[in-house]
Design a protein around this nucleic acid. Structure first.
Length: 505
RNA sequence: GGCUCCGUAGCUCAGCUGGUUAGAGCGCACCACUCAUAAUGGUGAGGUCGGUGGUUCGAGUCCACCCGGAGCUACCA
């Protein structure tokens, strides 16, 4: 079965921040996990490059929109690479193939009778380069950002007949209760639809930086319409000389809550209008908060993902974000929380479990994992872990799956303490018992590492290599799936402890 | 205003279709162990499950209302 996962495409008018890393890593975890299961995965991310804000920023800097987009797109490409994402393609909405694809689909929507010419009226702020809604206006007719008096203006646009999809969308939601998750987001989107849908403009007349409307080159397609279509157009040219659409479409989208409406209302309506199958599912995650507040430049509490990874490593960031914050909800992160979890869970529980296990196999069995059977009690406790992880990840519960894995890590440390292999080693009569304990430990560590691979791919690979068991396929995640006999290798500490800085003077 | 979600131990949160003495992690106190990155394991203290009133043999878990917090109520990428 194919598994097509997408992140939003990132708008090049902003600097990459931790939120971008968060979504990208989430998608990567799912992609890697599904590959472990032998699924045919396609993972897409990229940049959104058209629209007024980019055109304006370019003008301010005295460069062409294209130059600005080229320059900033690279930053996102670097971030994607840096977080170790295994995307199969990086789309740019300025790709000529994408632009052609957008025109084809929009033409289809037009030909199917869902586009008409209309007039958009409202208060226009020249500095925002955008129309404001009545609710946004301050003092009757002032821009809420610039506090300048706005003129009531009109613009002739092409409109998309969103209102025609009120009933089809309601039916889509009612027939597919899992279509949008978590539930609160489903409710939010559905209630918005039930509130009545108005048509939306599909083009912009004042702008040149965008995809020309195929039947009216004086206008460009509104950037959101253009951007959403990336998920569909990418498949037609991501692989040279192939069209992957029939193989991978429809997609599973991963998005932040700020773009829910576009994805859960307008996007499926566009696809219905074009006669294209709607996405398979949409999952909405929450915000990472810094000390209860949303990260923002004005608050000065923005975390630079590159800095964090420079200091602690990519795997640590990938782990921390999904361990600390329940995926799907907002949650607070902090430097203190980061260090606590790093030391307590990564260094002490997981890293040290690896150390003690390998050291004992080295010391008591000359580095050879005994080829015996597993401990029954431990086997009983670890039996369901892989299945639970699979179920949680099928439900996009990235934090829940990690919790399952960590329960197993703790169980293994308890096993060491309970069995006291250092005492067994002193008693010749306990040799078989010690064999079983050491094999069970090596096997448990291997399973846990296979399961944790999507979250911390480099760490898992190092540890599995040291265990002489490099296979990460999900079938092998079952406790006892691999026999003993392997020769262990050397392993430097996976997560050297962070010593707290000496009390500041 | 309307709608949605949330309010459970000091902190962060689990608790599915109502059913034994309400759970985890962190933090705190004490104990055990020494294989290991002085890491690990155990025990304990600590909660009128926001409030009130209902339904029920029985409610943290359902209903009503109230208090408190967050989000949505349309074209910002």
């Amino acid at each position: 079965m194919s598994f097509y996962i997408t992140t939003p495409i990132y708008y090049v008018n902003a600097e990459p921040h931790l939120g971008h890393a968060y979504t990208t890593i989430a998608a990567d975890i799912l992609a890697r996990h599904m590959r472990q299961r032998g699924e045919d995965v396609f993972f897409l991310t990229g940049t959104d490059e058209h629209g007024e804000p980019v055109a304006q920023a370019a003008e301010r800097e005295g460069v062409s929109p294209r130059e600005l987009a080229d320059r900033n797109s690279v930053k996102f490409r670097d971030l994607v690479k840096r977080v170790n994402a295994t995307n199969d393609f990086f789309i740019r909405t300025s790709d000529p193939e994408h632009e052609r694809g957008v025109q084809e689909v929009v033409q289809k929507i037009h030909d199917n009778g869902f586009v008409y010419e209309g007039t958009y009226e409202g208060y226009y702020c020249p500095r925002c380069a955008d129309f404001k809604t009545d609710a946004e206006l301050v003092d009757g007719n002032k821009c809420p950002i610039h506090l300048i008096v706005l003129e009531h203006e009109k613009e002739d646009n092409w409109f998309f007949k969103l209102s025609a999809f009120q009933e089809p969308l309601e039916k889509l939601y009612v027939d597919n209760p899992q279509w949008v998750t978590p539930r609160a987001r489903y409710n939010e989107a559905l209630s918005f639809i039930k509130g009545g849908l108005q048509d939306v403009s599909l083009s912009r007349a004042r702008l040149r930086w965008g995809v020309p409307v195929p039947w009216d080159e004086s206008q460009v397609i509104y950037v959101w319409i253009d951007a959403l279509l990336n998920y569909y157009t990418a498949l037609s040219y991501a692989r040279e000389g192939e069209d992957l659409t029939s193989e991978y479409w429809p997609a599973r989208h991963l998005i932040g809550k700020d773009i829910l409406k576009f994805h859960a209302v307008i996007w499926p309506a566009m696809l219905l209008a074009a006669g294209i199958e709607v996405p398979r599912s949409i999952f909405i995650h929450g915000y990472l908060l810094m000390d209860e507040h949303k990260m923002s430049k004005s608050l000065g509490n923005v975390i630079d993902p590159f800095e964090v990874m420079d200091r602690f490593g990519t795997d640590t960031l990938r782990y921390y974000l999904f361990r600390e914050v329940n995926f799907g909800q907002d949650g607070s992160i902090s430097a203190a929380g980061f260090e606590t979890r790093y030391n307590a869970e990564l260094a002490n529980e997981y890293g040290n479990l690896a150390s003690r296990t390998l050291a004992m196999i080295g010391r008591y069995r000359e580095g050879l994992v005994p080829g015996v059977g597993v401990d029954d009690a431990l086997a009983a406790d670890l039996a369901g872990v892989a299945d639970h992880v699979r179920e949680k990840l099928d439900a996009v519960d990235l934090s829940g799956a990690l919790e399952e894995i960590w329960t197993a890590v703790r169980r293994l440390n308890r096993f060491v303490q309970d069995e006291e292999p250092w005492k067994l080693a002193k008693d010749e009569g306990e040799a078989e018992h010690l064999d079983r304990v050491l094999y069970s430990l090596a096997e448990g560590l291997r399973c846990v590492s296979v399961l944790v691979h999507p979250y911390m791919p480099d760490t898992a690979a190092r540890l599995l290599a040291a265990l002489g068991q490099e296979d990460v396929s999900f079938d092998g995640a079952a406790f006892g799936a691999r026999g003993g006999g392997a020769r262990i290798g050397k392993l430097e500490p996976l997560f050297p402890r962070i010593e707290p800085p000496a009390a500041a003077a």
